[in-house]
Amino acid sequence: MSTKVRTADTRERILTAACEVIADIGFEKIRMRMVAERAGVSTALLHYHFDTREKLFTEAMTHSFANTAVDLERDAETAPAAVILARILRNLLPTDPELHQDWRLWQELWVRALRDETTRVFAVDLYAQLHGWVSDAIRRGITSGEFTPTDVDDLSTLVLSLSDGYGIRLMLRDPTVTLDTALTSIWRHVSTALGLPAAVPTE
């Protein structure tokens, strides 16, 4: 195995471990030693790759974000636009253990963004990328004739806002909200705006 490959593998293990530890106990409580132990590396090696907790946190968020992007891009050019858009909606909610962990990371990001300007700018940039995922899927469907034309930016903002609102209540285990009701409610707004069937598409 080349040095470059080993380095990439080590960074991957560290970032995966960082995501897990931050989601488990929160950013304010983590110590670099905890992440190193979870990743199976020395603290010195961890500091070699990430010299501060803040840099590790930012890279961990980016890592988590990138993994979600890979799933969203799967067969994106060949699947029906409605299927891709529904997939995005599912990925915006805590629909499985991995996305539940991602949501815990997002909640840590929101808290830090309220107190730290660098983190705030980073969070706004990540939201811009989320907006891009949703709006690109909508535009693709409009261009192909699958969707009724609409105000793309306005609908994308609504989708993200609804996803955040329902996602928070799901994370709080609010007994009045379920994944099915959240997804169905969000899709109702989407389907009305885009002239689509009321049923949420499956893969």
Rank of each mutant, 00 (worst) to 15 (best):
A113R: 01
D125C: 09
A128T: 15
A123D: 08
D153W: 02
L158N: 03
E146Y: 03
G132F: 06
I138P: 07
R115W: 09
R112W: 10
F147L: 06
W133C: 06
S156P: 02
V111F: 12
W133S: 05
D125Q: 15
Y127I: 08
D153C: 04
G132N: 07
F147M: 04
T148K: 14
V152F: 03
R112K: 15
E117V: 14
V152M: 05
R112P: 07
G141M: 03
D125R: 14
R120H: 12
V152E: 07
A128I: 13
D153R: 09
V134F: 00
T148M: 11
V121P: 02
W133L: 07
V134E: 00
L155P: 05
A137P: 04
Q129C: 09
L130K: 13
E146V: 12
S161W: 09
G145E: 06
P149L: 04
L160V: 02
V134H: 00
V159R: 02
T119A: 11
T119M: 12
F122K: 09
A137R: 03
I142R: 04
S156N: 01
I142D: 06
L130I: 07
T150K: 01
V159Y: 01
L126M: 14
T119C: 10
T119G: 04
E117Y: 08
L155W: 03
I138T: 10
R139A: 12
L114R: 14
T157E: 11
D151S: 10
V134N: 00
